[in-house]
Each structure stands twice: as structure tokens, then as C-alpha cells.
């Protein structure tokens, strides 16, 4: 057959593409369980780090099993809903209207008492940002927070994933003294907000900082009914 002819070229290209596609599909399917496992372990590590417990990929599962004593789903009115909290995909919930979202809650027994961990999901500058915020049992004071991002700029927006930024959240309050909901302001120096409701924004990372503030406001708002119920 003429190797430079059209027919040969077409057949060659088709056979090659089908073979390659089959090989890749086979690999992707057979490695899927390992990859899913890794993602789960990473999620457990993030949940633990929001209550200031450090873990490695190896011991995360054991620590998680020991410390996270309970997890459940609540709805926007604060009532419990059946289901597996860990399996909730926040991206899917985020697309629903606020009153229909399923909201996971994790309870963690720490040396300093029972903490409630709330997952958060929002948008930064280049892509999604997410995180976990843990609350003291007064349902007002933040005990710890951890944030992650998909593609924020290193050195600027990506700083939200650093301990230095996250440690600011400890001890901040989301309700003011008269019980009104205030959330947390991620503030530049020219913005005023009471110290207990404010953390410092990231220089050069304004849009990520604002995205984080909006994420906290939106997600605390959907959890508000649950938080108020628990408080009483």
C-alpha cells in the first residue's frame, strides 16, 4: 500500500487513536480506586487541620476515626437530614438554591472540648477555594480554620493556604454582642470592623481575599439556623 496515500494515512490515524484510547481508558479505570482513596485521605487531613490537629497521609485515617466522633447533614432550617456527610460534594450543593442545600457538619472531640467543623466552598480569583472552619461549642467563636485553593497565584492569593493567614481566625466571633450575625471581614487596612470580627487581608490578593470573605458570609448564612439552634 502506498504509505503516503490518503487511505493509508486515514487507517493509520484511526487505528492508532482507538488503541491509545483503549489503553488510557483501561488504566484510568483500574487506578481509580487508589486515586479516590488519596482524595479522601486529603479531605480527612484538611478536616483535622481545621481543629489544629496535624496528620500525615499515613496516620490521617486512624486519627480521623478517633477524633471525629460524629458527622451528619443538616438543612437550611437546622434540622438533621439522613445521609453520609463525608460523601457530600460541596460543588453540587453550591449550585442549588440556599434553602435546598445539604450542609455537612463534623463533630470533633479535642483536648479543649467538642468542636463543630463546617465545610466552606467559594470562588477565588482563578478558580474555586474551599476550606473547613471549626467552631467552639458556643457556636460563635472560631476555633480554627483551614483553606485550600485550586489555582490562586503563588505568593499572593495562594497565601490563604498558609498557617500564618489561617491562624488569624482563631478566637474570632461571627455574632456580635447583641447576637446579630456579622460573619468575618477580611479587611484591608483602610476598612474598619471590630477586631473580633476581622482578619487581615492578603496584600496583592484582594480578589482572593474578597472571595474568601464572601465564601464565609454565604456559608455561615446557610448554617445560621443550625448555629442558632445549637446555641440555645
Amino acid at each position: 500500500m502506498d504509505k503516503n496515500g490518503n487511505i493509508y494515512t486515514f487507517i493509520y490515524a484511526s487505528v492508532m487513536v482507538i488503541l491509545v484510547a483503549a489503553a488510557l481508558a483501561f488504566t484510568a479505570i483500574s487506578l481509580k480506586p487508589f486515586q479516590t482513596k488519596n482524595v479522601e485521605i486529603e479531605k480527612k487531613q484538611s478536616i483535622l487541620s481545621s481543629v489544629n490537629i496535624a496528620s500525615t497521609a499515613k496516620d490521617a485515617e486512624a486519627i480521623y476515626a478517633e477524633k471525629i466522633v460524629n458527622s451528619y447533614i443538616v438543612d437550611a432550617t437546622g434540622n438533621k437530614v439522613d445521609g453520609d456527610a463525608f460523601a457530600i460534594d460541596l460543588k453540587v450543593e453550591r449550585a442549588k438554591p440556599a434553602e435546598k442545600r445539604l450542609l455537612p457538619v463534623y463533630e470533633c472531640q479535642t483536648d479543649e472540648g467538642l468542636k463543630y467543623i463546617l465545610p466552606m466552598y467559594g470562588t477565588g480569583l482563578w478558580g474555586p477555594i474551599w476550606g473547613y472552619v471549626s467552631m467552639n461549642d458556643d457556636m460563635n467563636t472560631i476555633y480554627g480554620a483551614t483553606f485550600a485553593h485550586q489555582g490562586e497565584t503563588p505568593g499572593l492569593g495562594a497565601e490563604i493556604a498558609t498557617p500564618g493567614f489561617q491562624q488569624q481566625f482563631k478566637g474570632k466571633k461571627i455574632f456580635d454582642e447583641s447576637g446579630n450575625f456579622t460573619s468575618i471581614t477580611v479587611a484591608k487596612s483602610n476598612e474598619t470592623a471590630p477586631t473580633e470580627h476581622k482578619v487581615d487581608a492578603i496584600s496583592g490578593g484582594t480578589i482572593t481575599s474578597k472571595g474568601l470573605q464572601k465564601m464565609l458570609l454565604d456559608d455561615f448564612t446557610t448554617y445560621k439556623a443550625f448555629l442558632t439552634q445549637k446555641k440555645q
Partner: peptide
């Protein structure tokens, strides 16, 4: 194809 294979293996066995 080779690069995707490598990527899949890294994701499965050395995730970090």
C-alpha cells in the same frame, strides 16, 4: 498517551 499514564500513576501512588 505516555504522559497521561505517568500522571495517572503519580496520582494513584504518590499523591502529594
Amino acid at each position: 498517551a505516555l504522559v497521561i499514564l505517568v500522571d495517572q500513576f503519580l496520582k494513584a501512588f504518590v499523591y502529594d
